[in-house]
């Protein structure tokens, strides 16, 4: 819900599928925020369940940094590119292009880090 919809908006801003009108994609931000809410809530539950597994793995901090940056870019996209309904599409794309590139790169990075977390942990529980 979060990355799929965000990637769609990013790719459109980068000039793919130009026949899709940009402004109505604003509706997808709600889906992204619901997705982020679910992921944040379940992520916190997982962290509480296995604190040692995550906190002893540097990949976990890389993942959180990338998520935080991607969410910051998401907020910038929503405010600066989709916030002004009078903005013509060419201006939206000009403002959004570099944000979109960073957004895609950060999400791919965050997902890869997340997958790596399942295989690189040192301890699942605190080693007594």
């Amino acid at each position: 819900m979060l990355v799929g919809a965000n990637a769609l908006v990013d790719l459109r801003l980068l000039g793919f599928s130009p026949s899709i009108p940009l402004a109505p994609l604003k509706r997808f931000f709600r889906i992204m925020w619901i997705g982020f809410g679910i992921n944040a809530a379940t992520g916190v539950v997982l962290l509480i369940s296995y604190p040692t597994k995550a906190l002893t793995n540097p990949v976990f901090y890389a993942k959180l940094t990338m998520i935080a940056s991607a969410i910051w870019i998401l907020m910038k996209l929503q405010k600066e590119v989709f916030g002004d309904p009078t903005l013509p599409e060419t201006d939206m794309m000009a403002r959004g292009a570099s944000l979109a590139k960073w957004s895609l790169a950060l999400w791919v990075g965050a997902i890869s880090a997340g997958r790596l977390l399942a295989y690189t942990f040192k301890y699942i529980l605190y080693p007594f």
């Binding site: 009108p21 109505p24 999400w107």
Partner: peptide, 29 residues
């Protein structure tokens, strides 16, 4: 994510979400 981003957008549009989008253009995904 590539699947769900594209198919999900098309499905949502057909269900009446973000109706300002023309279906043909969403289908190009």
């Amino acid at each position: 994510i590539m699947i769900i981003g594209a198919v999900g957008a098309l499905d949502l549009r057909m269900l009446g979400f973000a109706k300002a989008l023309p279906i043909a253009s969403v289908h190009r995904l």
